[in-house]
Simulated assay, not measured.
Amino acid sequence: QGLHKEALMQFEKIKDTCFQAVYQLGVMYYDGLGTEKDPERGVEYMSKILNSDSPRAGHLKLAAAYNLGRAYYEGCGVKHSTEEAERLWLIAADHGNPKASVKAQSALGMLYSMPVLKDLKKAFFWHSEACHNGNLESQGALGIMYLYGQGIHQDTKAALECLREAAERGNIYAQGHLVEHYYTKKFYSKAAALAKRTTANNDISMLAKRADCHPTYVAKGVAMAAFYLARCLQLGRGIKQDEDAAKKYYSKACHLDPAVAFHLERAANLGRI
């Protein structure tokens, strides 16, 4: 935090002559790095870059557009507007250009998966672009879309390739879905082993930062893994039966994501898993 404060002071000194400083100040004020959070000020700095005619601001415009889109989507520093977030992210994504904002490409994939602007073909397109440009979160999302035929024809082979690679790279949501796939296919030992690894770390925030994935989906992935591990422990599938341990993991799943736990519990009660 001390280094952030020092950086903030230096950026403030040169902001009138350096667009990079303006951009950094926008990030720091929006996220509260080295200062109190001031999202309105962060938005002001990002808007200054995006609306500038100076060639010196050119290389920062797409990143600024992504951050402004994030502000509109979160309703932080500006009034919430999904449509404005979409418009700004489309600018930032630049038709899938690998040198553009890959985060914006992934964000569009997520946005078009949501009820408000749901368009799974667009979601698949943008997750594909982001994945090809190295985005880990989109790689996991792409695997899930292939697995369930969302926005694209179902392709289990392509799904597993995406999910396994994403899981190896640290995508916890992908790991959760792999656990589910292994369990469903009755590869109980593989399901239990992967679930045990996935549930080993309880620090959702740290896992999200390390993989640069959204904490909500990290929690969902761990919750899925915890539930299936509990099921394996309860029934002695692929692992030694241990009902006390099963209760612990059922509880963990409920704590991390009640909706996921409820959905899986209902499936278990109906004999589907």
Rank of each mutant, 00 (worst) to 15 (best):
G34K: 02
G26C: 06
Y73C: 02
K37D: 02
D53H: 14
E44P: 06
A65Y: 11
D53K: 12
A63R: 05
Y30L: 09
G69P: 00
R56N: 05
L68Q: 08
K37N: 10
S52Q: 00
A71P: 03
S54I: 07
A65F: 11
V27C: 11
M28S: 15
L60I: 12
K37E: 15
R70V: 13
A64I: 05
Y66I: 01
S52W: 06
E74Q: 00
D38R: 12
Y72F: 15
L60M: 13
A64K: 00
P39T: 07
N67S: 12
S52F: 00
E40F: 14
A57R: 06
Y72K: 09
R56C: 00
G42I: 15
A71L: 05
K37C: 07
V27S: 12
A64E: 05
G69A: 10
G34I: 10
G34R: 09
L68T: 05
E74F: 06
K61E: 08
K61R: 10
D53I: 02
E36R: 10
L33G: 06
V43R: 10
A57F: 03
A64H: 01
Y45Q: 10
R41Y: 06
E44N: 11
P55D: 01
S52K: 01
V43Y: 14
Y30V: 07
S54C: 00
K61D: 04
Y29P: 10
K48V: 02
G69W: 07
P55I: 00
E74V: 01
K48G: 01
A57P: 04
Y29A: 14
G32V: 12
E44V: 09
Y45P: 05
G32A: 03
E44T: 11
M46N: 09
T35N: 14
N67V: 09
R41A: 10
N67H: 11
S47C: 07
P55K: 00
K48Q: 11
S52T: 00
G34Q: 11
S52D: 05
I49S: 01
D53V: 07
D53T: 13
L50K: 08
G26F: 07
L68Y: 00
G58Q: 09
L62I: 04
A65L: 10
D38G: 12
L60Y: 14
S52L: 03
M28E: 13
Y30D: 09
M46V: 07
G69V: 09
A64W: 04
I49K: 01
L62C: 02
M46G: 07
L62E: 07
D38M: 13
R56Q: 03
S47G: 09
N67L: 03
Y29L: 15
S54M: 08
E44I: 08
D31E: 15
K48F: 07
P39N: 10
A64F: 01
V43N: 08
Y72V: 11
E40G: 12
Y30G: 09
T35F: 14
G26E: 08
L50H: 06
L50V: 05
V43P: 08
H59R: 04
S52Y: 00
A57Y: 03
T35G: 03
R70I: 12
K37T: 12
E44F: 15
A65I: 10
R56E: 13
Y45F: 15
D38E: 15
D31R: 14
K48P: 04
E74Y: 05
V27Y: 12
H59I: 02
N51W: 00
T35D: 06
N67P: 08
R70K: 15
G58M: 00
